[in-house]
């Protein structure tokens, strides 16, 4: 494999190695990895082994799964990618915040957008109680303080029914 990493001239695809914070290494084609702006800049600077000290193996595996699929994107498989995205978000529910931090730090715009939208969808039109419940946010206001904040943003709490469901 070592010989393949250096020569695009011979027709072989240029390979890059990503190293997770747990020390695991993943070898990937350059064309897949350059979706990630941070790595793209490193590749341009001549790096071929890229240590990712903020991304653990579990998260990196997920991100590679995403990048591989999206590297296949063409005009004709839009529907397939859409379904993949849907499943990807569903399947990574438990790790969503690790993923979003990693996507932000690696500058993978498509993934960042996908994850943020999925989280935003669970804030949109939800009741305060539901949002606290969904994201395990504990309320550290005293009742008086909470009342004051509610009063300041009265317009945002008025009107319409808010969604109490937890999905």
């Amino acid at each position: 494999m070592a010989s393949s990493s250096s020569s695009s001239k011979t027709g072989l695809k240029k390979m890059l190695t990503l190293k997770s914070s747990d020390g695991d290494e993943f070898e990937l084609e350059e064309s897949i990895v350059i979706q990630c702006q941070t790595i793209k800049h490193m590749v341009e600077d001549g790096f071929s082994l890229i240590p990712l000290q903020n991304v653990d193996t579990k998260t990196l595996t997920k991100i590679i799964e995403y990048m591989k699929k999206h590297a296949e994107k063409t005009e004709s498989n839009k529907e397939e990618i859409k379904n993949f995205n849907k499943e990807f978000v569903k399947g990574s529910f438990d790790d969503q915040f690790e993923l979003v931090s990693a996507a932000n730090y690696l500058h993978i715009n498509g993934l960042m957008d996908l994850l943020c939208q999925s989280i935003a969808d669970r804030i949109n039109n939800k009741s305060v109680r539901a949002v606290r419940e969904i994201f395990n946010i504990s309320n550290d206001y005293t009742p008086d303080e909470e009342e004051k904040v509610r009063d300041e943003h009265k317009w945002a709490h008025e009107g319409g029914e808010f969604d109490e469901s937890l999905d």
Binding site: C116, I123, V128, D140, E146, R150
Partner: peptide
């Protein structure tokens, strides 16, 4: 800045309502 990314994708009213979640 990441939390802001979520709030930029929700309606303003919903974004404003998050002020009451916690300090």
């Amino acid at each position: 800045d990441i939390i802001s990314q979520f709030l930029l994708r929700v309606l303003p009213k919903d974004a404003a309502r998050t002020s009451i979640l916690s300090k």
